[in-house]
Design a binder for these strands. Structure first.
Length: 217
DNA sequence: AAAACCGACAACCGCGCAGAA
DNA sequence: ATTCTGCGCGGTTGTCGGTTT
């Protein structure tokens, strides 16, 4: 199947948004909402693709956006959640009202990654994925040490994606978290009272987030 | 004063998923 | 069951302002 482009490239404006464009988008959404992003720019009279409008609204123009520096608390929450969820920025953002996934992603890449990498990479734990004796959760310190040891791309991808979790079951007894070459972590859910026989049935991502959040914070 | 460099963040791109047709 | 469309996500790139040389 051939994917059609998200928008017609011809005549579509790219690059930074002007205050005038912002105003048009804001007033249109305030009046009519944003039922269909694809149709919105045409209806609003904007020479932007729907995707661009959506991004601009979600990341910048939304009235509930909290701008400005991240607090210490927010920073700690991001670090903790990133330990568990990896680069699932939208899931992390769901825990930080007023913050967007893009904002958190940028904050992580420009501040936290650097900050954590300054710590001494000693006693970095190495857990073999094949063993089931891994700790229940990676502590904050361990995560920091891990990040410092892998100053390049800190990439932790949960094997079980958010969508899978949200529609099927919770992660199985020993869900693996795939990290950069050289390190493999295993989060043993058994050791946090989560056995295969008494698994949660995740109804949605929020429920999953609630679960992880309560454990970690 | 100007050029080069760097960091922060806004914006874009491509992919995967869900739901409708 | 298959195809198509739109949305959302995460990675990457572009732009801009501040700092250094």
């Amino acid at each position: 199947m051939v994917r059609t482009p998200c928008c017609e490239k011809m005549g579509m404006k790219k690059g930074p948004w002007t205050p005038e464009e912002d105003q048009i988008l804001i007033s249109f959404i305030q009046n009519y909402g944003h039922g269909n992003w694809r149709a919105l720019p045409k209806q609003a009279g904007l020479l932007r693709c729907g995707k661009s409008c959506r991004l601009r609204w979600i990341n910048y123009l939304r009235p509930d956006i909290k701008r400005g520096k991240f607090s210490e608390d927010e920073e700690q929450i991001i670090i903790k959640l990133h330990q568990i969820l990896g680069n699932r920025w939208s899931a992390i953002a769901a825990r930080l009202p007023g913050r967007t996934d893009n904002e958190i992603k940028n904050f992580w890449n420009t501040h936290l990654k650097k900050k954590l990498s300054k710590l001494t990479p000693s006693n970095v734990p190495t857990y073999d994925i094949s063993t089931s004796t891994a700790p229940a959760l990676i502590s904050l310190q361990e995560a920091q040490l891990y990040s410092s040891a892998t100053s390049h791309t800190t990439k932790m991808q949960a094997e079980v994606s958010s969508r899978e979790v949200s529609t099927v079951d919770a992660p199985t007894a020993s869900s693996t978290v795939d990290v950069d070459p050289g390190f493999q972590y295993a989060i043993s859910l058994d050791s946090i009272g989560e056995t295969s026989s008494s698994r949660h049935s995740w109804k949605n991502l929020n429920e999953e987030m609630e679960f992880w959040y309560n454990i970690c914070l």
